[in-house]
């Protein structure tokens, strides 16, 4: 039983205020997104329309704490078929950002900032890689972690620590 009186009417506005979140309120529940969602095809409990609905009703905690929101593969299928231009892939990014702020991001997502701050990339480039590249006549690749650490506001040492964690 959901009591609308206990829901958070501001939640949908909060999501809409995030970059990419503006379309959420336009949804008229036609279900085209759910029809095309490849994740829904493999995960019974995953349904884009359901996430939108819960958001619109103002089930803030339920949505932000749900592990389901991290299952989106960002394939943009829902976004392409939506007749109301909800742009659900982007909406869900907005929701995930809010969830991350609220501390709900899964571990794999949390590591990324550390990796970027450390290497400027997801995969480290060592001499080994550059040797291999050189064998094939490819130019060497440099790591630019410092730039990323500066943008992310993470000190390089903290980045290393994060990576190890």
């Amino acid at each position: 039983m959901i009591s609308l009186n206990d829901c958070d009417p501001g939640f949908k506005f909060e999501v809409a205020a995030e970059p990419g979140g503006a379309g959420i309120k336009a949804c008229f529940a036609c279900a085209a997104c759910s029809a095309r969602c490849p994740v829904a095809g493999h995960r019974e409990e995953y349904d884009p329309r359901r996430i939108i609905r819960l958001t619109l009703l103002g089930r803030r905690e339920e949505v932000l704490s749900s592990p389901l929101i991290w299952l989106c593969s960002a394939c943009y299928s829902c976004q392409e078929v939506c007749p109301q231009q909800v742009r659900f892939t982007e909406v869900l990014t907005a929701i995930k950002n809010l969830a991350a702020k609220a501390g709900y991001a899964p571990p794999s997502a949390k590591q990324i900032a550390g990796l970027l701050a450390g290497h400027g990339r997801l995969l480290a480039v060592t001499e080994f890689e550059n040797e291999k590249r050189a064998e094939l006549g490819l130019p060497a690749v440099e790591e630019r972690g410092a730039d990323y650490a500066a943008i992310l506001g993470i000190a390089p040492e903290a980045a290393e620590a994060g990576e190890e964690a």
Partner: peptide, 24 residues
Amino acid sequence: AEFGCCGYPLKSTDQDKALVIAAR
């Protein structure tokens, strides 16, 4: 030469920063 990550992996947790990275 200065290329690195495009910012995409960071989008789901912090798209503001992801955008700055892409802008870089």
